[in-house]
């Protein structure tokens, strides 16, 4: 199927993009990497009047370490994130998630900002943002604002980004020596959206995990924090955390798995991701001894 007709405008700057958004109102859609948007256009599932292309805005692309944050420009391609030394050292959770995002050709074109703005509830990167407690930088007519990940995801494909705003960057708190992370997902096939997945972070405090953040994906309308499980895990009781998932998560059925299967997998994810974090504590200790 071919897309319905639309107009096209290249934004030269963020201001230019904001101006075009205001000018065209509701019929306008921002085009980032296009790896989800163009597919939906090709299926005529959406038919915007105009696409405002962000790909020429060089300022939106790049990865830097700034004020204790890893700052990733919205138009930074997944492949750049995957290859970045800064990300590998300071946002290792994102580095661990990246090979699971689509496939090589998709990662060459898809962008982190596009993924966060589209906010597919089964996607890896929104969950990573949530697990890391990162912030989203959003530009609008009145300037730039920062929204914390916990306030960012509003509903199915709904975020804090307004219709007249542009997501410009993601800020992730840089990992410290005490940072722990875990990532695991269960897609039917490599590169697919997961039936259920978990991105987790914590702070190692001796042999225990503190400040646990568990961000599940593929189990709801948005990436979902499992707060009761977080508390249980911080108390050192993995099985209590697994039990707590019953009240934390209420996954709906989808094409690839029933809610019951997702719920079961969520427990498996928790055990395995906790083991990853524990293992990393041990290896950190081993490193200290060596």
């Amino acid at each position: 199927m071919k897309p319905a007709p639309f107009a096209y405008a290249k934004a030269r700057s963020v201001e230019d993009a904001l101006r075009l958004l205001r000018e065209h109102g509701e019929g306008a859609r921002l085009l980032a990497g296009g790896q989800s948007l163009i597919a939906t256009l090709n299926m005529r599932l959406s038919s915007p009047a105009i696409l405002i292309d962000l790909n020429e805005i060089a300022a939106l692309s790049g990865i830097a370490l700034r004020d204790g944050d890893v700052v990733i420009g919205a138009m930074t391609r997944h492949a750049e994130v995957q290859q970045s030394d800064i990300v590998a050292s300071h946002a290792p959770l994102v580095a661990a998630a990246m090979p699971h995002v689509g496939h090589a050709a998709i990662r060459n074109r898809g962008t982190i900002g596009g993924s966060i703005a589209f906010a597919d509830p089964a996607a890896e990167l929104p969950a990573c943002l949530l697990a890391l407690g990162g912030r989203v930088e959003i530009a609008g007519a009145t300037g730039t604002r920062m929204v914390a990940a916990d306030d960012y995801f509003r509903g199915l494909y709904e975020t804090a980004v307004g219709a007249d705003e542009v997501l410009t960057a993601i800020r992730l708190p840089a990992a410290t020596p005490a940072s722990r992370f875990g990532f695991l997902e269960f897609p039917r096939r490599h590169g697919d959206y997961a039936m259920a997945g978990l991105a987790a972070t914590a702070r190692a405090d001796g042999a225990s995990l503190k400040d646990v953040r568990l961000a599940y994906f593929g189990v709801g309308m948005t990436p979902v924090r499992a707060r009761k499980a977080e508390a249980a895990l911080a108390g050192g009781d993995v099985e209590a955390a697994v039990t707590a998932l019953v009240s934390d998560l209420d996954p709906p059925d989808d094409i690839q798995a029933s809610g019951a299967v997702k719920r079961h997998l969520a427990g498996v994810l928790l055990r395995r991701v906790t083991a990853q974090m524990d293992a990393r504590i041990e290896s950190a200790h081993d490193g200290g001894k060596a």
Binding site: Q35, I38, A39
Partner: peptide, 8 residues
Amino acid sequence: IVRGCLML
């Protein structure tokens, strides 16, 4: 490499 169907 890119998907030719996902780029205009």
